[in-house]
Design a protein around this nucleic acid. Structure first.
Lengths: 232, 232
DNA sequence: GATCGTACATAACAAGCGTTCGGTATGTAC
DNA sequence: GTACATACCGAACGCTTGTTATGTACGATC
């Protein structure tokens, strides 16, 4: 019946923020309880008071980071307005994944770094899989909406469009993290816009395309060489 | 003057292979000298005999993995023939990045896992940056070639096409690793082929697109407008 | 056959790790 | 004022880590 003196959950959030900072600065290899405690100006006793184990601490920190990103850190989505739909919302959602600011870069770094631990730990892997699945569904919803509005090509399923688009931005994140000077925000945006422009092109044109340039057929032939204009 | 009894370099390669196996099975957190030695059926003494430190061991293993991938593990590039050029070569190069077989999945896993360590360690980061840069240049060369053959749209720079394409496959790799059942080889190939199909579409069609459906303008309204066909 | 590197095994090392635990200070409840 | 959680600190525990040092088997050289 004794009410908590301080705000328990708020403290856990502070601890998580310290975890983020350590992760950003030193990666997973440098994530130790003592480092986190030091970042907080506290001791490991505090950490063990709020979390039963290091894994629980990490999991909570990642959960919270994901939640924060979903709820708050979406500058583009906010700029687009809360009731943005279709292609505008799709683009905003994708832009909010890219490391365009120091803050989002730090966030991206944490996620990329977490992939190693997640691929080893089944529970973390499940968390991640669920996260990216949810993200894909969110993007797919925007894509579906954009299709209905005639903004997006309809010759492809929204799920495929979402998977492809998410792959595109994820890969861009990785490249940008390793070569920031080659992938400044402006270029990242330009690459994404180019990508979206292609998805927005109506289908009919593809069919109208010069017959000699119809690569689609050869492309889907998977393993066999894509021969064009074979004479025999 | 004493000639090496066994083949020194071959032994280092064996050690590296053990590193790969440990990395695949347990990730970076599980990469210990004792684990590697155990994988080899040896002791840590062997490791220290061939490598001055753990970092050197890891770096060599990653270098060798990259080299092996560049030189040998390119089934699609080989299937396309050594003198394949243009879009065919481009597609093969991208396919060889995807985790389509157990072997390439293991390789992809190692690379994704290595990103954490690489983002922390400046030297490893440099290695990675150089690797992806080289890969982009390779892809860009194919893209340039494909453009000259009229197989690829020419309204975009080959470097941008390469960066975008590499991002696309890298992101696909990540998603496939976390949700293998959702991204079977067949779907990965299909997504890539869809992507390439768009890049192959000739430019003129984009300009011909129905004016009412010109989304590009609205898309960029957030930051820097990429206005096309501006009247004034 | 003595000498000398190579090629390891074995053992020990200090450092650092996550976790456990006893202690203390401080608030609330009765 | 007594009782009792909560909220930590501080220190210690056992274990694992990368690294170092010592020892030895062995093939090549002269």
């Amino acid at each position: 019946m004794t009410p908590a003196r301080g705000d328990h959950e708020a403290r856990r959030a502070e601890v998580s923020a310290a975890v983020w900072r350590v992760l950003t600065a030193r990666g997973f290899a440098g994530l130790t309880l003592r480092a986190v405690a030091g970042e907080l100006g506290a001791t490991t006793g505090l950490l063990t008071h709020y979390f039963p184990s290091k894994r629980a601490l990490l999991r909570y920190a990642l959960d919270l980071l994901d939640e924060a990103h979903a709820a708050r850190d979406r500058p583009h989505a906010e700029a687009a307005g809360p009731d943005a739909e279709g292609l505008t919302a799709l683009r905003a959602a994708l832009l909010d994944v890219l490391p365009l600011t120091p803050e989002s870069t730090a966030g991206s770094r944490i996620w990329v770094s977490s992939w190693d631990a997640a691929l080893t730990d089944p529970e973390l892997a499940g968390d991640h899989a669920a996260r990216y699945q949810r993200s894909r569904e969110r993007i797919a919803a925007f894509a579906r909406d954009a299709q209905q509005r005639g903004e997006l090509r309809t010759d492809r399923g929204a799920e495929d469009l979402a998977a492809a688009a998410q792959g595109f931005v994820l890969g861009l994140v990785v490249q940008a993290l390793f070569a920031p000077e080659q992938f400044p925000p402006q270029r990242q945006r330009a690459l994404l816009d180019d990508y979206l422009t292609d998805l927005a092109a109506p289908v009919e044109n593809a069919a109208v395309a010069a017959p000699g340039l119809d690569v689609a057929q050869g492309l889907t032939r998977s393993t066999a060489p894509l021969r064009r204009r074979t004479t025999s």
